[in-house]
Design a protein around this nucleic acid. Structure first.
Length: 402
DNA sequence: CGTCCACAGGAATGACGGGCGG
DNA sequence: CCGCCCGTCATTCCTGTGGACG
């Protein structure tokens, strides 16, 4: 690519009319300087952690609320300035954050925490307990007060139990130098029931609730964001109201609301529209949903794709047994060894969780108990997305539509 | 009212590729 | 290089079960 082409690209980018003035404020990780309707939580968290600046030990905390209710934003908002002040404190304070669901496994959670403490650890290869031990050694070595933030902590407990959590709450006693404070962030309100009482009492010294945003509150939030993100007056009030209403109907999730606002702006811009209105919001809803499906579909392992293909081409309400037969036929054509029915049953459940299939368990009395499966995506859609896939694309060319 | 279908879904176990420390 | 541990995906074996049929 020569300089002229690059120049043209930039010129075009500059000359294309834009609706946006500052798109970064619509990014999911953007934390605004003011968090509307969360002042109480900011204050509570700030006051709970303030003692650490004077060398005292703050309580462990649990933050509760559904997704998109501002838990992570409030935590960032409070911890970032805290981290900046700690150079003047008597005891060094550091913050180690991990989103346990993003991390995926217990090991990777600990690895992230270690990295946050400038401790280099291998990607894999160590025992979890060994990794934990190294983190404690590190903390003792730097004599630091570490605030460990475990985001989506319910994920960790559901999949790996509360042992690590227990170790964390106990760690303070083992350490002669340094200390650990825990901040647990949970999306699940029933999370406490999963915990061993000993762990709960250690972790839940103080708790902060995050109620869902109402439609009105979301509207205020979106209006504020729209003012800094878009050119004045480009987003209609009706569009913002609709974004707010749609997000409010799905648990008052601000992240989704802002996401929706960003995408509908993009839709409008691509259309060359001068204003963002309700039609763009509806189009954005569909686009977000479709993108999610495409991503989910593409990243499926081979056999899960085959199971999905069997399901979307089969008649409605097909049972596990029927689908298993279809699936085995597909495997034969693909020249691939079929998995067991047990495994296929589990794959069906996973596809349900991904929103690609609807699976419900029904009992037909004398005729047994099975899953009834209905596709949530069309056969054409699946064909289109998977056609370029070398492993299954060929199977879709002349698949008989029954 | 018991039987029995056609599976559900938990638990244990293992194969595999990757990566460590010694 | 070995022995160990990891996560992931799978198998095998198993017990459990809602409700139509007889």
């Amino acid at each position: 690519m020569d300089d002229k082409t690059v120049d043209e690209i930039f010129t075009r980018a500059l000359s294309t009319p834009t609706l946006f003035t500052n798109k970064t404020v619509l990014r999911p990780d953007y934390v605004p300087s003011r968090l509307p309707f969360r002042q109480a939580q900011v204050t509570a968290l700030g006051e709970a952690l303030a003692p650490v600046l004077r060398g005292f030990i703050p309580s462990n905390l649990l933050l509760y609320g559904k997704t998109g209710t501002g838990k992570t934003a409030v935590t960032r908002r409070v911890l970032t300035p805290l981290g900046q002040r700690t150079t003047h404190t008597t005891v060094p304070v550091s913050v180690a954050y991990s989103n346990t669901r993003m991390a995926g496994t217990e090991y990777r959670v600990l690895a992230e925490l270690a990295t946050a403490l400038s401790l280099r650890v291998p990607f894999t290869g160590l025992a979890v307990t060994e990794l934990f031990h190294r983190i404690l050694l590190r903390i003792a070595e730097v004599k630091s007060h570490v605030i460990v933030v475990l985001d989506e902590i319910d994920f960790l407990v559901k999949n790996y139990g509360d042992e690590t959590l227990y170790d964390f709450t106990r760690a303070g006693e083992k350490l002669s130098d340094g200390h650990i404070s825990l901040i647990g962030i949970s999306n699940d309100l029933k999370f406490k029931e999963l915990l061993d009482p000993r762990v709960l009492s250690g972790l839940n010294e103080e708790e902060i609730m995050f109620p869902p945003y109402t439609a009105d509150q979301l509207k205020t939030i979106l209006t504020e964001r729209a003012q800094s993100a878009f050119l004045d007056g480009t987003v209609t009030d009706a569009a913002i109201s609709l974004c707010a209403a749609l997000a409010a109907s799905e648990h008052g999730d601000a992240r989704r609301a802002v996401d929706l606002l960003r995408v509908c702006g993009e839709v409008a811009q691509r259309e060359g529209a001068r204003h963002v209105d309700e039609s763009h919001v509806r189009a954005a809803m569909q686009r977000i949903e479709q993108d999610r499906m495409v991503d989910a579909l593409k990243s499926l392992p081979l056999h899960q794709k085959l199971v999905l293909v069997a399901a979307v081409f089969s008649h409605s309400n097909s049972s596990t047994g029927e689908l298993y037969d279809d699936y085995m036929a597909l495997c034969r054509r693909a020249g691939s060894e079929p998995l067991t029915q047990r495994r296929v049953s589990a794959l069906l459940t996973e596809l349900d969780l991904l929103g690609l299939l609807s699976v419900r368990v029904v009992s037909q009395g004398r005729y047994g108990r099975t899953k009834k499966v209905n596709p949530l995506v069309s056969a054409d859609f699946v064909t289109e997305i998977l056609a370029p896939d070398p492993s299954v694309g060929g199977l879709l060319v002349h698949w008989p539509t029954k």
